[in-house]
Amino acid sequence: MPRCEQVPTAVDTPVDTVVRRMRALDAALHPRDGVAVFNRVYLTVTETVDRYVDTGRFADRHAAITLDVRFAGRYLDAVAAAGDGRAPACWRPLFQFRRHPGVRPLQFALAGINAHIGHDLALAVVDTCRTLDCAPAELEDAFDTVGDLLVSLEERIREDLMPGPDLLQIADPLTHLLGSWSLERARDAAWTAARALWALRELPDIAGEFTERLDTAVGLAGRMLLTPLAQPPLRG
């Protein structure tokens, strides 16, 4: 009898669980809700990470999965805490302005990315280092790969959510907001913050103060990104 070949089957990973939670959140939220706008963006990133994991694109698969799950968990925990005021300061502007008619979808997306990259990413790196008993340098490959995905996605976000060139003029306030924030700079700052927090791990009081100040500063930037803007006039 010929030997039957076994067909490899996809193995469910913790990243798949995160994807399911984000899809459920997307289904539960109104499409124009500011959190829904960011969630759709982040879901796209997480689905891409999931494909990278399945196809062996990460040099250290376990490290990449752990980092991605710790990272996403901080966002999902913040959403769960939004109703009772326990969310980190960096997320509060998005939750406060999520239904404001004067805030454009691109602002919601960038404010969510600002909170998640500027605050959550550094803490997720430290969480992962503690889980895997390793230093941040050992996660740099996974960090860079996920960061490159985010930077490439930022270009797509701007293309999909930015008003057309006939509406977005040089004097439009959104033009100035877009020029004031950079995902690539935020990612670099997150890596520096992660290394600093790791170096301070034996000094919990100082590390706690550093984390609190980081949270506050990122929240301030998010509030500025969500400045309500007058809608551009309709062209007749």
Rank of each mutant, 00 (worst) to 15 (best):
E154F: 14
D68V: 06
R21V: 02
G208I: 08
G236A: 15
A122C: 09
Y75L: 11
V126H: 03
A193Q: 14
D127A: 12
R23D: 08
I117C: 03
G219W: 10
T13R: 09
I117S: 01
W191F: 09
V218E: 06
T46S: 06
D120L: 01
R92Q: 15
V45Y: 06
T128C: 13
G56R: 11
L200A: 14
V37S: 03
V15I: 12
D188L: 14
D68W: 03
P136L: 08
T9C: 14
A142G: 05
A59Y: 04
D141I: 01
P31M: 00
L183W: 10
S180K: 01
D133G: 08
V79F: 09
L203K: 12
P14K: 13
A109Y: 06
R201C: 08
D26T: 14
N114F: 02
E159T: 15
D166P: 00
G118R: 04
S152L: 10
A230F: 10
R3A: 13
D127C: 13
V69C: 07
L226T: 00
D188N: 14
D68G: 03
D16G: 04
D166N: 06
A78H: 08
L67T: 02
A24F: 00
G219Y: 10
T216K: 04
F38P: 02
A111I: 05
P204A: 11
P136A: 09
D160R: 13
V126T: 08
R187A: 11
D166M: 06
D26L: 13
A78V: 04
A193T: 11
D215A: 02
V69A: 07
N114V: 03
A124S: 15
T216L: 09
R98Y: 01
I206L: 15
H62Q: 07
V126F: 00
V126I: 07
Q169H: 14
R61W: 04
F58L: 07
P2S: 05
R195H: 14
G179M: 09
T175M: 13
V41L: 12
D160F: 01
G73R: 09
G236V: 08
I113K: 09
D50K: 12
L200T: 05
W191L: 15
A186R: 06
L226D: 02
L174R: 12
L25E: 13
F108I: 13
V45G: 06
T211N: 09
R92N: 07
G112C: 06
D68N: 13
R195W: 02
D144P: 00
E202I: 00
G102A: 12
C134W: 02
G147F: 09
H116G: 00
R3F: 14
L121D: 03
D50H: 11
A196L: 15
T46G: 00
A78W: 06
D16M: 05
A72E: 06
P204V: 13
L167W: 08
G179L: 11
D133V: 10
A217G: 00
N114S: 14
N39C: 04
I157C: 09
E209W: 13
E5D: 07
A72V: 02
V15G: 02
A199Y: 07
A63G: 10
E140C: 05
I170F: 07
E155L: 10
L67K: 01
R20D: 08
E202R: 14
R86M: 04
P163H: 01
G34C: 11
A199Q: 13
R223V: 00
L225G: 03
